[in-house]
């Protein structure tokens, strides 16, 4: 976003005081292959899911740590968003799913040989979580294991 100085006072303070994680260092895995040989996954925090899957639901504590599987070969018309925030402009994704979840773009990169292949599945979480502990302890590692089992080399992470 938005450079903070361009925001309203309320929005700026909300973001400045948002209880986000503070890490001292980042884990690091060097890419094992060149991009042209890599299997690439999309992982998003945009609260997306397949049309016939269960929408995300805010729980009592205002969180939602579950995730949804979106097969990379599913029709983009079958992907919808149930993110529970109206703090972002939904018109972007109404116009074009790719502005948040570039599944068409990744397919094009595969056709052009820029990436080796797209992964079998993409994964979607809910964003704007004030308490991410269950994602850190449970659902995040679970998705990481699934991606590894599916032979993924690189993950592109997108917000909404």
């Amino acid at each position: 976003m938005p450079r903070l100085e361009t925001l309203s006072e309320v929005q700026r303070r909300t973001l400045e005081f948002f209880p986000c994680l503070e890490n001292d260092a980042a884990p690091w895995t060097a890419p094992s292959h060149s991009l042209a040989q890599s299997r690439v996954a999309l992982v998003t925090t945009a609260g997306l899911h397949r049309r016939d899957d269960q929408p995300f639901a805010r729980d009592a504590a205002g969180g939602e740590a579950s995730y949804r599987v979106i097969p990379s070969d599913c029709d983009p018309a079958d992907v919808v968003q149930s993110h529970f925030s109206i703090g972002f402009d939904h018109t972007g994704i109404y116009r074009d799913l790719n502005v948040t979840f570039p599944m068409d773009r990744l397919g094009e990169l595969q056709e052009r040989g820029v990436i080796g292949s797209v992964s079998t599945n993409y994964y979607s979480f809910m964003g704007a979580l004030r308490d991410a502990s269950r994602v850190i302890e449970e659902t995040g590692p679970e998705v990481a294991r699934r991606l590894r089992e599916e032979g993924v080399d690189v993950a592109l992470l997108t917000p909404t």
Binding site: M1, P2, L15, F18, T29, A41, A144, V154, P159
Partner: peptide, 15 residues
């Protein structure tokens, strides 16, 4: 988490 499983990640961030 993903990096610990040997997956290199690159993220788009807005803040």
């Amino acid at each position: 988490m993903l990096e610990e499983q040997g997956i290199a990640t690159t993220a788009i961030v807005m803040v």
